[in-house]
Design a binder for these strands. Structure first.
Lengths: 194, 194
DNA sequence: CGCGACGTTGATTTGCCTCAACGATTGTGG
DNA sequence: CCACAATCGTTGAGGCAAATCAACGTCGCG
């Protein structure tokens, strides 16, 4: 079941045979993640990459003042990883936490290397997924530069309406880069105007 | 000469033979770009990807109010492209302009597809480059969320000291997301403290 | 030389943060 | 299952960082 979901996801990017998919099945392990459980804690080394089958995650960093800043949310069919830590072999500046009881397919760094060797198409898969990630980060940077706080809030409601009901105002605020009190005020505005 | 630079760059990511590099040489064309000339204008379709051999580019978007917002600067050995437009076949929200008299190696979208077919290692190359791009965008998002304006300015001086002398205060401001007057004040502060 | 883009500086305004108080909701242990 | 704590959401007051506006000096270029 979980593997079927991964397969469906992969097929959106590349064509692979049932035979080839067995390799993926071999390297990806199912893992349950409790609500509030961490898949990665700031300061650790990220040695995995994970595909979200079910649930919701938050990828964030905590600064010196103890403030949290959300890099992104990951729902079903998203991937979670701290690439900086994985690729550059440095300790992670990010934490990854489940916001709900969740389920992931997890692949260890070394198995991912094996996969690249055994299934060269995996290169293409991860290239295409990386390109999608770049596009979405790039869009976010543009929005952060060009929109005011309230516009960013409304934009999030429009574009990520599926995420909104699954996160708190505080978490949303830490993604938008504003205080949660302000989110509350914007929400009030939005309801009034509706 | 220009091709040598590209080859050196590629060899940092993957191992290829002289033989294989000839394929790249076939598809990448040298192009001179005058100062202030646009490689891509907002509203056009991005049908290329380019490697900067010499010079300096600015990738930016212009919003409804006519304000410009810089997504990134590209010096020697960087790549310039609007992936969103290239991959999703939509008109570009970005413009790409040379800030100096420059020189690029440019590859057409369709030739890139051919290259992937003829040299599967190109998949790996672009996957690795994409990962680097993700890491740098992700770092920028974290900085934008967690640092104040002056901290972002000082951080840029530290980390991109090679870019600073090649751009104007206005362009830097449009990257940092602050007014150019503020950049001027921060600069004054920084000199005083030194 | 004169024009336009850039840089500097100060005065004023404003968007957003911080702080504080309180109600609502969720979670937990007895 | 209830009581209590903890977290979350709301609202308002006050303060501050940064934007805006304006004026002026400088530089490079046609």
């Amino acid at each position: 079941m979980e593997y079927h979901q991964l397969k469906k996801h992969i097929l959106k990017h590349i064509q692979i045979t049932d035979e080839e998919f067995k390799l993926y099945q071999k390297y990806f392990k199912i893992q349950q993640v409790d609500k509030r459980q961490f898949l990665l804690k700031q300061g650790e080394y990220c040695l995995f990459e994970a595909f979200v089958c079910k649930g919701c995650f938050r990828v964030f960093t905590t600064d010196e003042d103890g403030k949290e800043h959300t890099v992104y949310f990951a729902l079903e069919d998203w991937w979670i990883v701290d690439l900086d830590s994985l690729v550059n072999k440095v300790t992670s500046k990010l934490s990854i936490q489940a916001l709900e009881s969740s389920e992931v397919l997890i692949i260890h760094k070394s198995d991912k290397e094996k996969l690249y060797k055994e299934s060269p198409k995996a290169e293409q898969l991860f290239r295409k997924m990386s390109q999608k990630a770049i596009i979405s980060f790039q869009r976010r940077i543009v929005r952060n530069l060009s929109l005011k706080a309230e516009e960013r809030y409304l934009d999030f409601l429009d574009n990520y309406s599926n995420i909104v009901p699954r996160i708190t105002n505080i978490q949303l605020a830490s993604y938008l880069g504003i205080s949660h009190e302000l989110v509350s005020k914007f929400r009030k505005n939005a309801i009034k105007k509706k």
